[in-house]
Design a protein around this nucleic acid. Structure first.
Lengths: 329, 329
DNA sequence: TTATAGCAGTTAAGCAAAAAGAGTGCTAAA
DNA sequence: TTTAGCACTCTTTTTGCTTAACTGCTATAA
């Protein structure tokens, strides 16, 4: 078990290290603990024995281990209040309610990245409970139409439809009517299936140039599935931190940020705010990721902050929490 | 004036340096020029006198100066043919014609970034010749509607409209009818003005709760102006090049990439393919930018590649050219 | 003129040794 | 349980030295 004094010591070391990025020496803590450096050293040795602290080399000061950060996050850290400035900056975004949800989230996370110097990630997709409420087809010229699909949750997608030559307007109109009738109420992820197995047979019977026309619409509509949008902002902020002063480390991290397949894996399904410290995430041993799931109006996804392991966990959590709550209005 | 042999020498040095990233020594060129290193040294000294070559230190081999690269790009380099692989990778994108134009451009530039290891930038906006062709308003629930605006060029934008409480459906309907009637044919950048000076007076007269309703729609519609979308992809690719092995340099460059206001300034209005070498661009002295303007169907913008000054200019130009031509179909 | 061989001079880069500084662990005493 | 003191360890910085890679220049040959 860990004593109260050890707990306080761990807290002080973690917070000191978060602030300064330098190993914390026993001497530096004498005043605060009103005892000699030797006493502190004894306690530090105990904490190291428990695996909560570590040294960067034999004669260095102490640094929290991953386990130490974990203990700090789980047992010591208290929820933090946002500063007035933080609230003010973010409030502006959410008070503008003509913004589409995904834009509001992106913008607010951009601001959080600025405020914290961490990298902000937003993963979004339309959730499976989006059902097609309306299909609108607008002709642009003889060969081109815009197909717009609106779901019951207010999600909008649009695609180009290229109409092959030598097809009468009537036939096009008939195809649109057929699709419109059969596709209303279908979930976005089922559109391709419904087109193939329910719409196609009807078109085959009712329309002359059925093959070409069907294909034109199928191409446009078949990819409404669960595409995930990816936003990564403020990568350079993160690199200002002193632990990222090594070219290879930077390259490695930026490679991951550039790899959208990798970033998509950051997806979080847990509704709480989760912290992944150092080796607990796949980015880098010096990095922590804090993230949470969100859902609103047929749009779901993950918001995440990527910072140094020396992250201000309390503040990061408060910021994510604020955004999450504002997403839910 | 520059002699033929000097021209050939400059060409060899530039291309050699582009390949190896190491200063080119006189000795290394003996074989190719069938003469002694001393002869090469004399010629190198002349080229240095003309400002086309420079040394990294007194006893180093030669490296092209900015002026040297410029001479190479303007007078020596020949247009390059794309390799079959390049064409194949890019062709896939443009053969899929249900992709919205902006997606096709983004995707193809992403691929170019992969192929070249340079950073790809796409700046896009709807051009001023987009006129509103259709306004569609879809109710989602009692308080929320989605307003969709489609232009004659096929551009689609959507916004949330939050309807204040205690307003009858009839009034909402009337407002939509008024807006729809007056806004058709208006250019996107004039929407805010038209709403204020033409639509508002009509609504004021015809509708009871005019103030609140007008504001709801104005908020949604007032920002259709020239917003510029920004895409930056493959930043980490660029950093693989050996000249970016310095942490401060990397930080400086990434800072610029993260700063979307800065990136927007990369905008190019010239229809040709332009090269900005080293100090000619604002990013970094070791960087070159190659870019061009594009326009298609009411969408305009800039595509750019950011690479080391040691860029394969011919190939980069060919790639941009290919994409530009395919945008124009 | 133009090209070449030879040589002195310059610089970067790598390596080892030395010196300084920051902290620790351990022991013995309070 | 706490503390003072001291030996020890490791990092960081500085310095000098050596090697290798080039160049510029000069004198000579074609």
């Amino acid at each position: 078990m860990i004593t109260d004094r050890q707990k306080k010591l761990l807290k002080t070391i973690v917070e000191n290290y978060i602030k300064t990025a330098r190993p914390v020496s026993s001497k530096a803590l004498c005043k605060r603990f009103k005892c000699s450096s030797a006493t502190i050293r004894n306690e530090m040795a105990s904490l190291e024995g428990l695996g909560l602290l570590q040294k960067t080399h034999t004669s260095s000061g102490r640094v929290p281990s991953d386990k130490g950060y974990r203990y700090y996050v789980d047992n010591i850290m208290k929820p933090e209040e946002l500063s007035d400035e933080d609230v003010m900056r973010l409030g502006q975004i959410f008070s503008n309610n003509s913004l589409v949800l995904s834009d509001a989230i992106s913008k607010s996370m951009e601001i959080v990245s600025e405020l914290t110097n961490y990298t902000a990630i937003v993963l979004g997709r339309s959730s499976d409970d989006n059902r097609i409420a309306k299909v609108e087809v607008v002709p642009i010229d003889n060969n081109k139409m815009i197909a717009i699909v609106i779901t019951d949750k207010g999600h909008v997608e649009n695609r180009n439809v290229t109409i092959p030559d030598n097809i009468s307007k009537d036939e096009v109109k008939r195809v649109i009517e057929i699709i419109d009738k059969l596709i209303i109420g279908v979930s976005l992820s089922d559109v391709a299936k419904v087109l193939e197995f329910e719409v196609k047979p009807v078109i085959d019977k009712a329309v002359k140039q059925h093959e070409a026309l069907y294909n034109a619409f199928y191409n446009a509509f078949s990819d409404f599935g669960p595409k995930q949008s990816v936003m990564v902002r403020g990568t350079s902020n993160l690199l200002k931190e002193p632990e990222f002063d090594d070219v290879d480390k930077i390259r490695n991290i930026l490679n991951k940020f550039d790899d959208h397949d990798f970033i998509r894996n950051i997806k979080e399904d847990d509704d709480g705010i989760k912290v992944y410290i150092g080796s607990e995430n796949q980015i880098d041993d010096d990095i922590s990721v804090i993230k949470t799931y969100f859902y609103k109006d047929g749009e779901e996804g993950t918001i995440a902050l990527v910072g140094p392991k020396r992250m201000e966990y309390g503040r990061a959590e408060a910021l994510l929490n604020y955004i999450k709550e504002n997403i839910g209005r």
